[in-house]
């Protein structure tokens, strides 16, 4: 596995989207490649930072308000699609 591929698999792994086979190949690559090892380390750190920040600061609309918003919006949207 070349480094570029290892990087991408490492990125995918940050979102839990790497397949088992990809992870096995990446682990083997990491065992012998210092650069990718460093990249992985930084990448994991970045994920942790972002996650900590998101959980702390990102505010979502609650489901109920979203449904309400969508209903209001769709009603208005219907007027426009009829034109």
């Amino acid at each position: 596995m070349p480094c570029t591929e290892a990087h991408i698999v490492c990125d995918k792994a940050q979102y839990n989207e790497a397949t088992l086979w990809e992870k096995v190949k990446m682990t083997m690559h990491l065992a012998m490649c210092k650069i990718c090892k460093q990249y992985t380390k930084n990448n994991v750190k970045l994920t942790k930072l972002i996650n900590a920040n998101r959980d702390e600061n990102f505010q979502r609309l609650d489901k109920q308000s979203k449904v309400k918003l969508k209903a209001t919006f769709d009603k208005e949207l219907a007027k426009y699609s009829n034109e």
Binding site: Q59, L61, K66, F73
Partner: peptide, 19 residues
């Protein structure tokens, strides 16, 4: 494409606003 607006952007806009 306004059909997707609420799904795609409502959380983002809300977060932007609430801060």
């Amino acid at each position: 494409n306004p059909n997707q607006w609420i799904n795609l952007y409502s959380d983002y806009l809300f977060n932007y606003t609430i801060s």
